[in-house]
């Protein structure tokens, strides 16, 4: 969704800019050389300029990925991502930045940009680091050469190797179906577990360790008051009627107020410590959950534990 607010075009830098999540999707085929990872990453920033996909002069907002060998420091693969999703979440509530809107900008690689599994999981040569950066264009161009806001590269952590295979250090995707037109035409949202359709047996690499449950919550219009979504398909088990879903369960919000709203949904993984009977509600004694990864070698990194998704102007009937 493109924003419709007016850019200030005064060369201000964003009030903040954070890399909020990155994802890997293992894509497999019958031909091994055509298997590999699709990568995605997403920024959130507060800015007084519109971020646009194309400024009208063929200058594009682009994401960049560099895969670097940890042994030789050589760049092994570079990717330029032009498949972009730009979402304006509305005005920044911080009164210090009255002209700013909050944007989320997400980049997707495609099937021609698969990353070999060795670069993600390590191979006989060693391990690899993934570096992410981006260039944003705005609608401020007034002649002259193109110029960009450059988001300097940052190295991911926890994304590759064994750390990435711990279900309590990542989140599986929860599949949200929006309400209103384009979704279910209902006055509530539905979320499904990460493999709800049970038809993707080849969606992961061989190192995949599955989470036991996903915890799912929602909020309306940026209230930051998170309510549980309700599991309605785990009949006969302890988690039925709670905010915890299995890989093929579904959960729903309560009835939403009619009209246009911004609906936030968040979810995170839980994994039982030991084998359990009857799918009990997880807690810190019987399970681990995603608490956000904290790098002991670099304490400046803040962390979060939930994956967030926002649905703009959901028109609730």
């Amino acid at each position: 969704m493109q924003s419709n607010f007016t850019s200030q075009c005064n060369y201000d830098l964003p009030a903040y800019c954070n890399l909020i999540q990155y994802s890997r999707v293992f894509r497999c085929t019958n031909v091994d050389s055509l298997s590999g990872y699709l990568l995605q990453f997403e920024y959130e920033l507060s800015w007084n300029n519109n971020v646009v996909q194309n400024d009208g002069f063929n200058n594009l907002t682009e994401g960049n990925i560099e895969i670097v060998s940890d042994v030789t420091n050589n760049v092994m693969q570079t990717l330029t991502l032009t498949n972009t999703q730009i979402t304006d979440l509305g005005p920044d509530p911080n009164p210090s930045f009255p002209n700013n809107h909050i944007f989320r900008v997400k980049f997707f690689s495609d099937n021609s940009q698969l990353v070999p599994r060795g670069y993600i999981n390590g191979d006989v040569t060693g391990t690899y680091s993934v570096k992410l950066s981006a260039n944003f264009v705005t609608d401020c161009k007034q002649g002259g050469g193109p110029y960009y806001l450059w988001l300097l590269p940052v190295t991911t952590y926890g994304f590759t190797g064994d750390r990435g295979n711990d279900p309590c250090k990542r989140n599986e995707k929860g599949w949200v179906t929006p309400a209103g037109s384009g979704g279910t035409d209902t006055n509530y949202l539905i979320i499904a577990g990460y493999n709800a359709l049970q038809n993707l047996t080849c969606g992961y690499n061989s190192n995949f360790i599955e989470p036991s449950l996903q915890e799912v919550e929602y909020e309306v219009d940026g209230s930051n008051y998170w309510l549980p979504m309700i599991n309605y398909t785990a009949s006969g088990f302890f988690i039925n009627g709670t905010k915890y879903i299995r890989w093929d369960d579904f959960a729903k919000t309560g009835t939403l107020p009619s009209g246009n709203h911004v609906i936030g949904v968040r979810y995170r993984n839980w994994k039982y410590n030991t084998s359990q009977t009857g799918w009990p509600i997880p807690n810190s004694s019987n399970a681990c959950h995603n608490i956000g990864y904290f790098d002991p070698n670099n304490s400046i990194y803040e962390y979060s534990s939930y994956a967030y998704e926002y649905w703009i102007a959901v028109n609730i009937p």
Binding site: C17, L19, I20, Q21, F26, Y204, Y293
Partner: peptide, 14 residues
């Protein structure tokens, strides 16, 4: 496929 998501709040310089 099914994305495996790594959530962060990592400051980026611009």
């Amino acid at each position: 496929g099914i994305p495996e998501i790594f959530v962060r709040n990592q400051k980026v310089n611009t």
